[in-house]
Amino acid sequence: MSKKVEQFEKWVRRRPPAPNSKVRLICLPHAGGSASFYFPVSKELAPEVDVLAIQYPGRQDRRHEPNIPSIPDLADQIFAAVRHLDDLPLALFGHSMGAVIAYELALRMQDAGLPSPVRFFASGRRAPSRHRDDMVHLGSDAQMVAELRKLSGTDAAMLADPELLEMIMPAIRSDYQAVETYQYEPGRKLDCPVTVLTGDNDPRVSIDEAASWEAHTTGPTELRVYPGGHFFLTDQSTDVIELLTERLVRQSVLTPGRPRVEVM
């Protein structure tokens, strides 16, 4: 097995494969999340879209690997794993922490002279330039559990199980450290269309903070506001899949200008 294939298989999960697809979508999970979060998306978009879900170390089948508490380091390694994927148009989707990693991944594609993503989807995350002094990763396990409960993205039964918590807490804390210590580099912009998705009741992202993604690309921007909190994706999955289909399969085009805002 070549080093390139080995790196790809370490980081990427496909469920199911879509060999006859016309476009590829790389999906990056939230803090504490795993590739399996996107398997339902992959199933819904197949066979038109080849969905690649990124698996961070420290969880599921990579649970014995050390966590990486750095957004740039995560982006560097993911880029090394996927940079050879040049046979299909490529789009990026990241939720919460995943949106920040996807942004850094897109910048690395530009720096390497590779084709820019045909579309970048930023979900459940304020723009990189909109900083908050969050320090959840420095809190106690109880404080972190309280944060997870507030965001409603982790199974309540899992949070109530001490043995399971002991297994997943290192990865969660590492991810929070990565995103909370991330430093945005001013002046750098994407050159692709950006679709921003956010919940209208997200305690971690205001609509204004989500709209600020417009300043991070020279391409057109749209903002979709859905009912729900930080994990609106779960409750609004039908509408989100429809949006992905519209943008990736039907390839509807955004026009430059002020971001189009749609409240669902």
Rank of each mutant, 00 (worst) to 15 (best):
P186V: 06
C192M: 08
M158Y: 11
V194F: 02
A156H: 13
P170H: 02
S174V: 03
D202V: 00
K150L: 14
G187F: 03
M144G: 14
T195Y: 02
P193C: 03
L159G: 05
I172S: 00
S174E: 07
R204H: 09
E166N: 13
E180L: 05
P162V: 05
M169C: 05
V205W: 00
V205N: 00
T181P: 02
E163I: 11
P186R: 06
M158D: 13
V196K: 02
V194E: 00
L197Q: 07
M144N: 13
P203Y: 01
D191W: 04
E147C: 11
R149Y: 11
Y182G: 07
L148Q: 10
I172M: 13
D200R: 01
P170A: 08
A146W: 05
N201I: 04
A157G: 13
T181R: 08
T154V: 12
T195H: 01
T181M: 05
Y182S: 08
I207T: 11
S174Y: 04
S206Y: 03
V194W: 02
S152H: 15
A171D: 07
L151I: 15
T198F: 06
C192D: 01
R204D: 14
T195V: 10
P170M: 11
K150Y: 03
V145G: 10
Q177Y: 08
Q177E: 15
I168M: 13
L197F: 12
E166W: 05
C192K: 03
D161L: 09
D200H: 03
D155W: 08
D175C: 03
M167I: 15
M167A: 14
R173P: 09
P186H: 04
R149E: 14
E163P: 04
D191L: 04
G153F: 08
L190W: 03
M144K: 12
P203A: 03
M144Q: 13
L190Q: 06
V194A: 02
I168L: 12
V179R: 04
T181L: 07
A157M: 13
M144I: 15
P170T: 05
Y182L: 07
L190M: 05
L197R: 00
D191M: 06
E180F: 07
D200N: 12
L165Y: 06
A178F: 00
P162A: 08
M144T: 12
L165D: 04
L164A: 13
R173T: 09
L165V: 08
R149C: 09
V179I: 11
A157Y: 08
S206L: 00
K189I: 11
V179E: 05
Y182V: 09
M158H: 10
Y176M: 13
D161P: 10
L151V: 15
I168T: 05
E163H: 10
V205T: 12
E147T: 13
V194R: 00
E185I: 14
L165S: 07
E166G: 13
A160H: 09
T195D: 01
K150A: 15
L190A: 02
I172D: 01
K150F: 04
D155T: 09
P193H: 03
K150G: 10
I168P: 04
Q183S: 14
G153S: 10
M167K: 12
K150D: 13
